[in-house]
Design a protein around this nucleic acid. Structure first.
Length: 569
RNA sequence: UGGGGUGUAGACAAGUGGUAAGUCACCGGUCUUUGGAACCGGCAUUCGUAGGUUCGAAUCCUACCACCCCAGCCA
C-alpha cells in the first residue's frame, strides 16, 4: 500500500506518538482503532480516519482494530456493519481477527458501572428527560445573548449506594419503562464543561439490539462506552475528531475513577470538501428526498458512490495522505481529489475511443465496403498494456464539437478545407458539409490521404489536430452519464437568508447521453471496468449496463486546455 | 458573560529562535498521433492584528480580533 506519491511529512499526531515512544509511555506499542457507529454508510470523510488509523499502525509496526460502537439499538442495523466492513476492505485495509463490537463488552461495562455506584461515583436519577435538561443549566447561547447559568443538583443525587445498586439492578431487569430512570455519573453540576455536569451513563431502551438481541434493556451512552472500550482493547492512541475534544475530560474521568489502563486520545479536524456535504444527516436527506438515486449514486461522496463512479481505492488513499492531518477547520478543494484519481487512472486505464455526440463523416474516396483493422496503443503510459486492432471504414462518427464551420482562432480541429488526423488512422480533409432545413450540420464529407495510414504523412507535413472516431457500421451503442459537482456552491451549508442548503444543489449535476458510439471491443465489459475515452475522460462501466448497450459513468474528465481557452475569450 | 479549540498564499499544509518546505489550483513555456500525460519556470519581503523580549521572532511574552465546537436519555 505504498503507492502514495505524497511526501511523507510528519504531522502532529505522529510527533506525539514519537514522543510517547521516546519516553516509553506505552512500551513502544502503537495500537489504533477505527470506531464507526453502524448507522449509515461510509463516506470520504470516514476514509480520512480509516487511512489515518490504519496507516499510522502500519508505519509504527503496530495494529489497528475495527470496532463498531453500537450502543444505540434504535439507530443501528447489521446491514450497516456489513457495508462498512465491505467498504473498508475495498479501501484496502485489514484488521486480521480484530473485529470488535462495543456490545461485546456490555457485561464488562455493566460491571464498571456497578463499581462506580459502589464508590459513590454514580447514581440513579429519576428526573424526567425535560427536568434533567433544565437542571443542567446553560453554557452559552447560540443566537441571542443569554447568561451562563450553572446546573443544580438533582434531588436524587444523594441516594445511598444500596438504593442505587437496587434501582440499577431493577433497571437492568426491565422493571421500569423507558425514561423512568437513568444512571448518571456523580461529578459536578457546576462544572464549566457541560459534559461534566453529571452525564448520563445508562438509559433504558426497550428495543432489541442487532447483536445482543433482547439480552439488555439498558444501554450505555457513547461517552461512558467509548473510552473504556479503547481501554479494554489496549489502544494506545485514540484518534478522533475535534468535536470530541470537549469530551476527553469525561473519558479521562471514567478511566481514572476506575483505575484502568488509560489510552491517549488525540483529536484532529474532520474532512470538509468543496462543493459537497459530508454529514450523515444531510446525505440521508438527499437519499430520502430522492435528490440522488441512492447511497451509491455516483455523485455521492460515499465510498459506494465513489466506487460506482469509478474512483479507485488507491486514489482515495493517496488523497487522504495528501490532505494531511491537523487541527485547523478546513475545506479541501475537490480539485485535489480529482487530481488524485486522474493521476492513478492515467497510469492504469486502457485507452479507447468513444464519441459522445456523434456526427457522421463519409470519406468519399475510401472504397465502399472496405474494412481495415488499425493498430492502437492501449496505454501510452504503460507499454506492457500492448496494442489492439480497431476497425476503420468509409463511414465513421466523430465528435460534433470537433467540427466548426467557422472555426475560431486557435481551433485546431476540423473545418471546411482543413486537414486533421484521425487517431491511429488517416489524415482527412473536410470537403463538404450537409445540413438539414434548420441549418443544423447532419453529415460531413471528407477525403483521406491513403499514404497517411497510421497517422503520419510520408512528406513530413504536420497537422495540429488529432480526432477520436468510431467506425459507423462497427460502433457499439452506449449510454454515457456525465457527472458534475452535486452543489454549485463551494460550501453548500452556507445558504443565504431564508435559503436552505438544498437550494445550493446543482441542477445540472447529471447529464445522460443516450446516443453515444463507442469502440466495438467495449461490448460486454463487466460492471466496474475502467477505461479512458481518449480526449474525453475516465469512465467506468455501470451495473445498469446490458451486453448490447453498456452504460458508462464518467469518473472525471480529462484536463481540457481548449475548454479553458474558449471559456476565457 | 462560561468552557474547549484554531488562525501560515486562492485551497490544503510543513515549519518547534537562525532568516517561509511540499502539494492542488492558477499563469507562462518545452514536447506531443489524446489541446491528455511528462518536463521547465512563475506564484507569501511575510505568517490574524498591535505591542514587547532578542543580534535575530511564524516560532517566546502581553493584549486584542476572527472563526469552530459544547446545554441528546445521539455518536
Amino acid at each position: 500500500m505504498a503507492e502514495s506519491t505524497a511526501a511523507p511529512t510528519s504531522d502532529f499526531i505522529r510527533q506525539r506518538i514519537d514522543s510517547d515512544n521516546q519516553t516509553g509511555r506505552f512500551g513502544g506499542r502503537v495500537h489504533t482503532r477505527f470506531p464507526p457507529e453502524p448507522n449509515g454508510f461510509l463516506h470520504i470523510g470516514h476514509a480520512k480516519s480509516v487511512v489515518l488509523n490504519f496507516s499510522i499502525a502500519a508505519d509504527y509496526d503496530g495494529m489497528c482494530n475495527l470496532r463498531f460502537d453500537d450502543t444505540n439499538p434504535t439507530k443501528e442495523e447489521s446491514r450497516y456493519v456489513e457495508s462498512i466492513i465491505e467498504d473498508i476492505r475495498w479501501l484496502g485495509f485489514d484488521w486480521q481477527d480484530r473485529l470488535f463490537f462495543a456490545s461485546s463488552y456490555f457485561d464488562q461495562l455493566h460491571d464498571y458501572a456497578v463499581q462506580l455506584i459502589q464508590a459513590g461515583k454514580a447514581y440513579v436519577d429519576s428526573l424526567s428527560e425535560q427536568e434533567i435538561r433544565e437542571y443542567r443549566g446553560t453554557a452559552i447561547d447560540r443566537q441571542s445573548p443569554v447568561e451562563t447559568v450553572p446546573g443544580k443538583d438533582s434531588p436524587f443525587r444523594n441516594r445511598g449506594v444500596r438504593e442505587n445498586l437496587d434501582l440499577f439492578r431493577r433497571m437492568k431487569e426491565g422493571e421500569f419503562a423507558e425514561g423512568e430512570h437513568v444512571l448518571r455519573a456523580r461529578i459536578d453540576m457546576a462544572h464549566p464543561n457541560l459534559n461534566m455536569r453529571d452525564p448520563v451513563m445508562y438509559r433504558i431502551i426497550r428495543k432489541p439490539h442487532h447483536r445482543t438481541g433482547d439480552k439488555w434493556c439498558i444501554y450505555p451512552m457513547y461517552d461512558f462506552t467509548h473510552g473504556l472500550c479503547d481501554s479494554i482493547e489496549g489502544i494506545t492512541h485514540s484518534l478522533c475528531t475535534l468535536e470530541f475534544e470537549n469530551h476527553r475530560p469525561l473519558y479521562d474521568w471514567y478511566l481514572d475513577e476506575l483505575a484502568v489502563y488509560h489510552p491517549q486520545q488525540i483529536e484532529f479536524a474532520r474532512l470538509n470538501l468543496t462543493y459537497t456535504v459530508l454529514s450523515k444527516r444531510r446525505l440521508l436527506e438527499l437519499v430520502q428526498k430522492g435528490l440522488v438515486s441512492g447511497w451509491d449514486d455516483p455523485r455521492m461522496p460515499t465510498i459506494r458512490g465513489m466506487r460506482r463512479r469509478g474512483y479507485t481505492a488507491a486514489a482515495i488513499r493517496d488523497f487522504c495522505q495528501r490532505i494531511g492531518v491537523a487541527k485547523a477547520d478546513s475545506r479541501v478543494d475537490i480539485a485535489l481529489l480529482e487530481h488524485c484519481v486522474r493521476n492513478d487512472l492515467n497510469k492504469h486505464s486502457p485507452r479507447v475511443m468513444g464519441v459522445l455526440n456523434p456526427l457522421k463523416v463519409v470519406i468519399d474516396n475510401y472504397p465502399e465496403g472496405q474494412v481495415e483493422y488499425l493498430s492502437a496503443i492501449n496505454n501510452p503510459e504503460d507499454p506492457a498494456a500492448g496494442t489492439r486492432e480497431i476497425p476503420f471504414s468509409r463511414e465513421i462518427y466523430i465528435e460534433r464539437d470537433d467540427f466548426r464551420e467557422d472555426p475560431p482562432r486557435k481551433f485546431f480541429r476540423l473545418a471546411p478545407g482543413r486537414e486533421v488526423r484521425l487517431r491511429y488512422a488517416y489524415m482527412v480533409t473536410c470537403t463538404g458539409v450537409v445540413k438539414d432545413q434548420q441549418g443544423q450540420v447532419t453529415e460531413l464529407h471528407c477525403r483521406y490521404d491513403p499514404l497517411t495510414r497510421g497517422g503520419n504523412a510520408p512528406d513530413g507535413r504536420r497537422v495540429r489536430g488529432t480526432l477520436h472516431w468510431v467506425s459507423a457500421p462497427h460502433a457499439c451503442d452506449a449510454e454515457l452519464r456525465l457527472f458534475d459537482r452535486l452543489f454549485s456552491s463551494e460550501n453548500p451549508d452556507k445558504a443565504g437568508k431564508g435559503a436552505s442548503w438544498l437550494d445550493n444543489l446543482n441542477p445540472d449535476s447529471l447529464q445522460v447521453l443516450r446516443t453515444c458510439k463507442v469502440e466495438p471491443g467495449l461490448r460486454g465489459r463487466p460492471a466496474g471496468y475502467r477505461c479512458q475515452f481518449e480526449r474525453i475522460g475516465y469512465f467506468c462501466v455501470d451495473p445498469d449496463s446490458t451486453r448490447q448497450r453498456p452504460v458508462f459513468n464518467r469518473t472525471v474528465a480529462l484536463r481540457d486546455t481548449w475548454a479553458r481557452i474558449s471559456r476565457r475569450r
